[in-house]
């Protein structure tokens, strides 16, 4: 791991009183697919926002290509972001623009290319996600899988060095899921982009990731290749990978003792 593209070192991030990250350190090597996994609410999306500089950590460092993200000026930050593409969970397509204009958006903003060149580039990107034919549709007319593919086309419009996927598999039917998995793999091998996947879908992620980090309770509880993780015997990792309902990560939200609560006088419960 000599060439690390993104390094997070002892990152602490608080949301209100709650500690989302407690000295989390993650290294993402160049050109690899790295997955960050963990139960819902473990702050996986927060991680992407930290890398994109949308939020600042309490302490610790976030470096992209050696640049200290939290210290950058607004302008420098916007320059760094041009090298990043991000695919949001909901697609986050601009609802007032057509599919074509959505993909063209970053090109129009950041380049001075003539219109016919932008057209060729957009069609190329749409072709690579298989939606060239849908370019005149509007986001409201797309299915979940399609809008995510358009979002992917938009994310790669500027040929970024880093692509971040926020829950790319959630809520998709098996076919759409297969399409997305394939796309991520192809994009990574074809362009050599560093890919970060944030997800809790184990089989799909494990199928394409080179390295997996598992975050839970604000800490990295396990990391390594998918194979290594499956063989690990740490009970927390074990529970997550195997998808067991109860274990070190409790099934129950913290509550009073069940039996005791049932026996309590009902009118003491001031619900209304």
């Amino acid at each position: 791991m000599s060439d690390s593209h993104i390094i997070l070192e002892k990152v602490v991030y608080l949301r209100g009183q709650r500690c989302i990250f407690d000295e989390v350190s993650i290294e993402i090597p160049r050109g690899k697919i790295v997955a960050v996994m963990g139960p819902s609410g473990a702050g996986k999306t927060t991680l992407l926002k930290l890398i994109g500089g949308q939020i600042q950590p309490e302490s610790g460092s976030v470096r992209v290509d050696g640049l200290e993200i939290p210290r950058l000026s607004r302008k420098q930050l916007f320059d760094v972001r041009k090298t990043m593409g991000m695919m949001f969970q909901s697609g986050a397509l601009f609802s007032d623009l057509s599919v074509f204009e959505n993909v063209a958006f970053p090109l129009r903003i950041h380049t001075n290319l003539p219109d016919d060149m932008i057209r060729d580039l957009v069609l190329l990107k749409l072709q690579s996600v298989g939606l060239r034919g849908a370019r005149r549709l509007f986001p409201s007319e797309l299915s979940g899988g399609m809008s995510r593919r358009v979002a992917l086309a938009r994310a790669i419009a500027l040929d970024p060095e880093i692509i971040m996927y926020d829950e790319p598999f959630t809520g998709l039917d098996p076919i759409a899921m297969g399409v997305i998995v394939d796309l991520i793999k192809t994009l990574n091998s074809a362009y050599g982009t560093t890919s970060i996947i944030v997800s809790h879908d184990i089989p799909e992620t494990a199928g394409i990731a080179d390295i997996i980090y598992i975050i839970s309770g604000g800490k990295v509880i396990g990391s390594g290749s998918p194979k290594e993780l499956f063989e690990q015997d740490s009970p927390r990792v074990h529970q997550f990978i195997k998808g067991l309902p109860d274990g070190p990560v409790p099934f129950h939200y913290p509550a009073d003792d069940y039996e005791e609560e049932l026996m309590r006088v009902p009118d003491a419960e001031r619900l209304f």
Binding site: F78, F88, A92, L93, F94, S95, F105, H110
Partner: peptide, 18 residues
Amino acid sequence: GLMKATEQLSSMEMMGVD
């Protein structure tokens, strides 16, 4: 508000557009 809820503002920011 809807743009914010559907992460359109966030994605705009990530594309380097204010």
